[in-house]
Amino acid sequence: MDDRALIARVLAGDSGAERLLYDQHVDGVYRLAYRMTGDDDLAREYTQETFIRTFERLDQFRGDAALSTWIRAIAGTVVLNGLRKVKRFRQREVELEEGVAHAATARRAEPDLKVKLEQAIEDLPAKYRMVFVMHDVEGYTHEEIGAALGMPVGTSKAQLFRARARLREALSDFAGEWAS
């Protein structure tokens, strides 16, 4: 069933079509949310929010792009907004509990490539991280990223370039790992 027919059935109140739409797109949304958060609860929350908004606004889908692109765009917005809230919350937690900051420092003192890479990716600005995860981890094209995040293809490429440059700098202690 193509997107247009599926949407028509959903808008007509066909609950089977709702489930079909969900099944067709949920994996990609959850994977992206999990890659961005590393947290099952948050990934579930963002995925659920994405589909709630999708169903709520489906009557506004104009069909200019594929349905998958439109849903990814909603997911991108939900995840980025959600991460901002989480970041603010965590910043406050760290400010309140000095011990957390000490623990984080201690972790950074044990340079293991995997840990360092994860930390470096997490330290990227949310938008850079989103582009990096979508392109280098989930295999999206720049055209798909641009459509999903509402940015020109050139911006997507530039943000990926900057993200990689930051990671390269953060991982400079491990240069031998890829130079050899």
Partner: peptide, 11 residues
């Protein structure tokens, strides 16, 4: 990076 990143937050 691409190879290492595949292991980042594996869903």
């Amino acid at each position: 990076l691409r190879e290492a990143a595949e292991r980042y937050h594996v869903p």
